[in-house]
Design a protein around this nucleic acid. Structure first.
Lengths: 209, 209
DNA sequence: GTCTATAACGGGATAGAC
DNA sequence: GTCTATCCCGTTATAGAC
């Protein structure tokens, strides 16, 4: 019934192939082959392969900026934080091709570099804001130096977890399970939470395994 | 006086270019150009570009396996551990091109995948061994679940720190300072150390900034 | 919108002279 | 060991018919 536009099919399939084979290994010919359309047709919809990457990045960017718009003053409860992490990991995993060959991708589509870095900063800022909230609520106890270190660690982990996970576990399943990533993130905060909350998080995080 | 063999010069220059531009962006022509030798000459010494990558990887592998041969039963003091981390980060940074476009590199030279994973496992194992040693010495206090999580986190950080660092700090200096990486690693252990040791590590780690 | 055919280019790799 | 010249091929991208 619903006739999906070719343009959108190109984007979907490209994303799929990029993620599983790595963007540099995916030729425009492979994409059109997979879709059973002609290469010429593909170039009717996108004037270059870079445009496809650009468009996919735009979607990633939008999702991220939306997700990372964390209210400065709100008192975020811990379980909402877990949920936030879950969404974050899912989003990153869905566009993991960007991270898997980062230098290559960023160097070939160079306007992306700035935007990519901006998102990175937003991530770290969001974690800072959230930890501050935990501090205010009295459920987290941490010095300033440690806080900075932890936030940076959280940022690094969000970015590279899915790459690391697929790398270390040979069985290359199609989609990445965000669960273990969330577990790992929660465990980074664990030592700095107060007793009650620690027990709580320990329980929650276990369900993510 | 000492006439460096062309073969070695090719390896050195390739490593340099790979690290700064990304392996996929470095053509055999660029390498020979940089060395002011002919492309044909390059192919006299290496029968393919893949062979250069392979040889560089072999060097990385050897360095790593040497470094990661941590004695099972020894009581490693904390400051020796810091030194160990330092060497580790330096080695990884020296071959960071491998990590910067991992999927691409591993997919094109596929025999590398297995060896790469083996090194990864060794890293995690080494961290486990070292933490066990800290536990035995009574300077570290950590549950089994947390231990596993921390060791995995250490492994991830060793692998991706230099990529993350160059990514987040725009000023692209040539070489990566391993200091901040070591600082970050030590801070991952910090919460699980006993009081005395914590203070000690806090001091040591600060010198790494 | 979609196709076929093909141009244009770049990078990896080889041949053969010096 | 080193050079020049060249081949081969995959990939991006375009032209023009349907």
């Amino acid at each position: 019934m619903k006739k999906v536009k070719t343009r959108d099919r190109i984007l979907d399939t490209s994303l799929l192939l990029f993620n599983s084979l790595g963007e540099p290994n995916v030729t425009t010919l492979l994409i059109s082959d997979e879709l059973e359309i002609s290469p010429g047709n593909l170039y009717y919809h996108f004037k270059s392969k870079g445009d496809i990457v650009e468009e996919l990045f735009r979607a990633y960017e939008a999702e991220m900026l939306d997700l990372l718009a964390v209210p400065e003053e709100a008192d975020v409860p811990m379980d909402q934080f877990s949920f936030f992490l879950h969404l974050l990991f899912e989003a990153v995993a869905r566009y993991r091709f960007l991270y898997q060959d980062l230098v290559n991708v960023l160097s070939r589509y160079d306007q992306l570099q700035v935007r990519f870095r901006r998102i990175l900063k937003k991530k770290e800022l969001a974690f800072n804001t959230l930890c501050e909230s935990f501090r205010r609520q009295g459920i987290m106890n941490i010095g300033s130096d440690e806080l900075a270190s932890v936030c940076e660690q959280l940022t690094l982990t969000v970015c590279y977890w899915s790459s690391f996970d697929t790398l270390s576990h040979l069985d290359d399943r199609e989609s990445v399970d965000p669960g273990r990533g969330v577990y790992q993130m929660l465990h980074l905060l664990l030592p700095y939470l107060n007793e009650d909350e620690q027990e709580q998080v320990r329980l929650t995080s276990r369900t993510y395994l």
